[in-house]
Amino acid sequence: MIEKNPKLPINITWTKIGKDKELYRIYVDIQITENRKLYPSFGLKAVFKAIRLNSSSRNKEIVILIDNHSPYGFHEHDKLPRIHDSRKILTEQNWQEAWGIFQKKIKEL
């Protein structure tokens, strides 16, 4: 989906049917921001998100979320959709490595 050496910003959205036959909306948003306090890693803001578009109701659930911001750096919200405030810190140091983890996770959907 993303080129080997893409130019920022990147803002991509697509849909995917999961193994559970549910529809998912996938978001990738990577950009440079002036807010170096919240995004100390060169002002880079990265958000990788998968939302289940629940067919049985109008509800939407975030099921995968990897992002980066102070004080955590790159992290996964690891207990979604139930608990949004739980975070697992990732050892990855750049958005390309975080993108690789996200790709593996969306393949599991």
Rank of each mutant, 00 (worst) to 15 (best):
W14P: 10
Q103H: 04
L44Y: 05
I64C: 04
E34Q: 10
R52M: 13
K105V: 07
G73C: 06
D85Q: 08
N68W: 00
K21M: 05
S57Q: 01
P71D: 03
I26T: 12
F102G: 08
W14E: 14
I26W: 06
K21F: 15
L80N: 04
P6Y: 13
H84C: 05
A98T: 04
L23G: 07
E61C: 08
E97R: 02
A50P: 02
R52A: 11
K7I: 14
T91S: 08
R36N: 08
N68F: 01
I10R: 07
T33V: 15
F42H: 10
D85F: 06
D29G: 14
R82E: 08
E97D: 14
D67L: 02
S86E: 08
I2G: 13
G73P: 05
Y39W: 07
I62P: 05
G100R: 09
R58W: 12
I2V: 15
R58T: 14
K21T: 15
K45T: 03
Q93L: 13
T13S: 14
L44W: 01
A46M: 01
L8M: 00
I62M: 03
S56M: 03
Y39S: 03
R82M: 07
K21G: 11
E92T: 12
D78R: 00
P81L: 01
D20V: 10
I66N: 00
I83N: 08
S41E: 07
L80E: 03
R25Q: 10
N59V: 07
Y72S: 07
V63N: 02
P71W: 03
R58H: 10
Q103C: 01
I12N: 14
E22D: 10
R36A: 12
R58P: 05
H77K: 06
E92M: 08
S86F: 14
I26Q: 05
I51W: 02
L90S: 10
G100S: 13
T15I: 12
P9R: 04
L44G: 04
Q93S: 14
I30H: 13
N5W: 03
I89Y: 12
P81C: 02
N5I: 00
F48V: 02
K7L: 12
I66R: 00
S55C: 01
E97W: 11
Q96D: 13
N59Q: 09
K19E: 09
S55A: 10
K21N: 15
N11Q: 14
S55F: 05
